[in-house]
Amino acid sequence: MDANRSLVAVSFGENRTKGDKDAAEWMPPTKGATCTYATDCVATKLPWKLTIDRAETKALRAVAARCRNTSVNFASAQ
């Protein structure tokens, strides 16, 4: 699967807090981690052509507006 990004290990409590929530419903509590999380989210969804609903798009755009010098490069997985 040749992915440059992967899952990030977190504490049990953080994992339970996030659950199956998307970016519209959950962001990392550490402010410095939001850009990385949002970038990883987009970088994972784009190659696999996974859907992003309006609320998640809005949340990711809001985070992206605060992220300087961040880009997502991807190649289709299929």
Rank of each mutant, 00 (worst) to 15 (best):
M1K: 09
M1D: 12
D2P: 10
A3K: 10
N4V: 02
N4Y: 05
R5W: 06
S6G: 15
S6E: 13
A9M: 13
A9I: 10
A9E: 15
V10W: 09
S11A: 09
F12R: 04
G13N: 11
N15F: 11
N15Y: 14
N15L: 14
R16I: 06
T17A: 13
K18D: 08
K21P: 03
A23P: 10
A23K: 02
E25D: 13
W26Y: 14
W26P: 14
M27W: 08
P28R: 03
P28Y: 06
P28K: 00
P28T: 00
P29K: 13
T30D: 15
K31S: 14
T34M: 09
C35L: 06
C35N: 01
Y37D: 06
A38D: 05
T39I: 08
T39A: 14
T39H: 07
D40T: 01
V42N: 00
V42R: 04
A43W: 01
A43F: 04
A43K: 03
T44K: 08
T44W: 08
K45G: 03
L46F: 02
P47M: 07
K49Y: 01
K49S: 04
L50D: 12
L50H: 12
I52S: 06
E56R: 02
K58M: 07
R61P: 03
R61C: 06
R61W: 11
A62L: 07
V63H: 03
A64M: 04
A64T: 05
R66E: 15
C67W: 10
N69T: 12
T70W: 12
T70S: 13
S71E: 07
S71T: 10
N73M: 05
N73H: 09
F74Y: 08
F74M: 01
A75Y: 13
A75W: 09
S76F: 06
A77D: 10
A77I: 01
A77H: 08
Q78G: 14
